[in-house]
């Protein structure tokens, strides 16, 4: 059972119709970069950093669901697991921040390799259930292992000096570091999606038996996509651990896995920018709701239901759909 999410909702690969809108695209990219650079002067920097971390997390998740058609319901394991490793490396071993994050990312990649190898043995709904169950195992490990600090998590993680030069305790320095991490991750995803590898992934998403009959070893492609996605989720989680100087159980719960699904669904599965928009929306909503008495899960659940029933393209997907319809 291959995923038909794509064919039902998404357009096939975005057509690169010549350089009709190349100018607009470059202008938009520059505008986006400008906003990202100016953001910490307009908004609370920690908020923007949180958005960036979750945006990278959602983009990593979207690489699987949007481009390979695999719904992982356990991505919190990579996000939160890497956060623990990064926090431990920075606090207990006193490693340099970039190295700590790299260690976290590597641990997520390793977990992704193991989980992926197990999960790709089944398809569709079973894939989702297996990833969910495995991530729950990570949750229990995080609760019980000695180095994770149980219910308290790892607190007071030092941000340290990047490469021994830049003091990350200064909010602006930290912000630009997070922005650089996000852009690097995003560029990697962009490159992956537009590479021959990405095209094979899309083929698998559309029709796996056909891809197999064309001679592709789809299992390998799926596993590689899974490991890549897990690593990037780990990169996001490790960075977040330094931003908040904290690694906690919240990051490994299945509710967190659900939240990243929501970010992607809301922003638009299979679009590059969708998860970024969705992450911004969900994080902002969480901040807003924290100040009211409304129960957050109810609101998030309601958005889920509305998205699935009425709004399956997501925000960016809907906009792209309307633009395309107008231009044809």
């Amino acid at each position: 059972m291959t995923s038909k999410i794509s064919s039902a909702v998404l357009p096939a690969a975005a057509p690169h119709t010549a350089d009709r809108d190349r100018g607009t695209r470059i202008a938009l990219i520059l505008l986006g970069l400008g906003v990202a650079v100016a953001a910490p002067f307009l908004l609370y920097p920690v908020f923007v950093m949180k958005v960036l971390c979750f945006a990278l997390f959602a983009c990593a998740f979207n690489l699987l669901i949007g481009f390979a058609g695999l719904l992982s319901f356990g991505h919190a394991a990579f996000f939160g697991g890497a956060a623990y490793v990064t926090a431990h490396a920075a606090k207990v071993w006193g490693l340099e921040p970039a190295l700590s994050i790299l260690l976290g990312t590597a641990s997520a990649a390793l977990m992704g390799l193991v989980f992926g190898a197990l999960a790709i043995r089944r398809q569709g709904i079973y894939f989702a259930m297996i990833t969910l169950a495995l991530s729950q195992m990570v949750f229990f490990l995080a609760l019980q292992l000695p180095f994770t600090g149980g219910e308290d998590g790892i607190q007071g993680v030092p941000r340290g000096r990047l490469f021994g030069l830049f003091d990350l305790n200064q909010p602006l320095v930290m912000y630009y570091f997070v922005l650089a991490v996000f852009l690097a991750g995003f560029a990697l995803i962009w490159r992956t999606v537009h590479s021959p590898f990405g095209q094979v992934l899309k083929a698998i998403r559309e029709n796996e038996p056909r891809a197999v009959s064309l001679g592709y070893r789809t299992e390998r492609y799926k596993l590689l996509a899974f490991v890549l996605s897990a690593s990037l989720a780990g990169l996001a989680g490790g960075t977040k651990a330094l931003v908040f100087q904290l690694a906690s159980l919240t990051d490994v719960t299945w509710q967190m896995s659900g939240e990243v699904v929501l970010m992607t669904l809301l922003g638009g599965m299979g679009t590059l920018l969708g998860p970024v928009v969705g992450a911004g929306f969900v994080v902002a909503l969480g901040n807003y709701l924290a100040a009211t008495s409304l129960p957050v899960p109810v609101v998030i659940g309601a958005i889920f239901v509305v998205c699935v029933l009425l709004f399956r393209r997501g925000i960016v997907g809907e906009i792209a759909h309307h633009l395309r319809r107008r231009s044809t």
């Binding site: 999410i5 039902a8 659900g258 899960p297 889920f304």
Partner: peptide, 16 residues
């Protein structure tokens, strides 16, 4: 639609 949407919908209901 894809079966996964049923999973996502009921996930939302569970949260609510």
């Amino acid at each position: 639609l894809d079966h996964l949407y049923g999973l996502l919908l009921t996930f939302g209901v569970a949260l609510i």
